[in-house]
């Protein structure tokens, strides 16, 4: 008799737990306000990444097309993957002295692991994080970028 009773109480308990689970899923079905997904391409205009989001490495330029990079190559040395290459050139400055300045700051986005060592170690704060995250391109060579803009010069206050 006891076994008979257990048999049914077991079924009852089982069904109760199943109904509890269904209560949750059914509850969410009638709560469309809890939907958490983002409508990504539609909300592109309003979508803003966080300030410190690691999208890519960029070199900020001011209105006079001036950046802060001295071309010292510390970022190149610190990069674990060799995703930064710095080409320098010699130029005579206003005082007539020959100085080494950055010619091309080449950044291979495809090789970057976003560890942030280049930005952390940069002595003149020339590079920083950009918030772009849509990096899809049809040609891999487009992922190699030159960070300093053509014709840009170094800011005066930055010492080489």
């Amino acid at each position: 008799m006891n076994a008979f009773f257990n048999y049914f109480s077991e079924i009852g308990r089982g069904v109760k737990t199943l109904l509890k689970g269904m209560q949750i899923t059914n509850g969410y079905f009638f709560k469309p306000r809890e939907i958490v997904t983002q409508k990504y391409p539609e909300n592109r205009a309003t979508l803003k990444m966080f300030d410190q989001f690691k999208g890519e490495v960029i070199m900020p330029h001011d209105d006079n097309n001036q950046h802060r990079c001295t071309g010292c190559g510390i970022c190149e040395n610190n990069c674990p993957n060799g995703s930064i290459q710095i080409l320098t050139k010699k130029e005579t400055n206003a005082e007539g002295k020959a100085v080494r300045i950055v010619d091309k700051h080449i950044y291979h986005l495809s090789m970057c692991t976003f560890c942030g060592l280049c930005i952390k170690t940069c002595p003149s704060d020339a590079i920083t994080w950009g918030q772009t995250f849509e990096h899809a391109v049809f040609d891999r060579s487009k992922l190699t970028k030159v960070l300093n803009k053509p014709g840009s010069t170094i800011k005066k206050e930055v010492k080489g």
């Binding site: 966080f50 410190q52 989001f53 690691k54 692991t113 976003f114 560890c115 942030g116 994080w129």
Partner: peptide
Amino acid sequence: FEESFGSRLLHS
């Protein structure tokens, strides 16, 4: 995570 250090999975 993303707000503080910019990445969601591989933080370094």
